[in-house]
Design a protein around this nucleic acid. Structure first.
Lengths: 206, 206
DNA sequence: GTCTATACGCTGATAGAC
DNA sequence: GTCTATCAGCGTATAGAC
């Protein structure tokens, strides 16, 4: 695969799916659109991915791996450069998520699938998430606990849940706040991150 | 309609749709499932609702109207009984959502429908919500602004969005926190509401 | 192993008879 | 208002070519 400049059938499907999911949403994209854009036969999807749902999961896994890596390296940097400070830890959690969410290339599809993973209570998907990315949350919980020693473990986890909810909501751009048409997407995202970090810092410190 | 104990075709479709959407999601539920459960003809949906999308909106509207009315009357009571206090206002926002979530007659279904809308990032549904219930959020924003005079309007709206995200997440039981098997569902939800109100109060007061 | 042609049982939607 | 009939498009499955 490194020996050729051509993309494989599988990669072309992934790329086309990612673009179309971002533009039209998950259920708004048909496999026929995907395979037409990728210039492959309709049956190739089921050959390479088994099902449409699994194709979505594969698109999702790519982003999640990337986001988790960014979160962990940002956490490491935050602990080294700002030991004992809460906000840099929260920034390490929030910023990679919002960056991925607003990435042009498939970010919107990623957001949709993240939320689905929870909403569907799909146990195998939940297990996949917990198995592959649970250690990330645990690292953040430990780092936050060290900054806010008065917090019980139960309260800590409740608040992490609330932060995750607010973050997911912000990622999906679901709320009242709409980006003013004059504002660049990047500036809007940075504003969202800054606001959420301050919000969460105040809440964790209470 | 008040003259008879029978439910109309339209109401039977709405009830069946709410239950099925909660269980299988929007795109996971076919109109044939809905009409089969409601014991009406498949074409009745398009006759009464025009489209599947509009049926989704109507399912939402029934519950949202109820929840919004509860929120507004609770807000009024909070402002009269506890003028100048933030936490009663937040409780007026959070607790009706809790109440709906606990309602025997489809309330749990409603919460899951909201969660799914959020997960699937259904744009038309989102616009519908914003058009019809934006004024409720605006009333809360005004009440909160009076309690936290230092907050800019923009910051206020960001924080309301974060609160809404955390609330949606928590009410749908999305997060890490799992209800211990010995705990009653009602007690668990009341714990969630209490934690969230404290969390949000700290965040708004920062 | 990869890929294609083809078809099956569904879907949401609509037109027109009653 | 409600029904039947029918439509194009959907995700999926499989047989078989290379």
């Amino acid at each position: 695969m490194a020996a050729t400049a051509h993309f494989s059938t599988k990669d072309r499907i992934l790329g086309a799916a990612e673009e179309l999911f971002a533009q039209f949403g998950f259920s708004g994209t048909s496999l026929r659109q995907v395979t037409s854009r990728a210039d492959v036969n309709i049956a190739a999807v089921n050959y390479h991915f088994g099902s449409k749902e699994n194709l979505v999961n594969e698109v999702f896994r790519r982003r999640m791996d990337e986001m988790s890596a960014h979160r962990l390296s940002a956490l490491k940097a935050a602990l080294e450069k700002h030991p004992g400070e809460l906000e840099p830890i929260l920034a390490a959690f929030v910023e990679p998520a919002l960056a991925i969410a607003q990435d042009r290339h498939g970010g919107a599809a990623f957001v949709r699938v993240v939320a689905r993973a929870y909403a569907e209570k799909n146990d195998s998907l939940r297990k996949f998430l917990s198995d592959h990315y649970g250690h990330v949350l645990r690292d953040f919980a430990k780092a936050i606990a060290a900054c806010v020693p008065g917090l019980s473990k139960e309260e800590l986890y409740w608040r992490l849940d609330f932060l995750a909810g607010a973050l997911t909501y912000a990622m999906a751009d679901f709320g009242l706040i709409k980006r003013p048409s004059g504002t660049a997407e990047k500036a809007h995202r940075e504003r969202a991150a800054r606001e959420l970090i301050r919000f969460a810092a105040a809440a964790f410190n209470s």
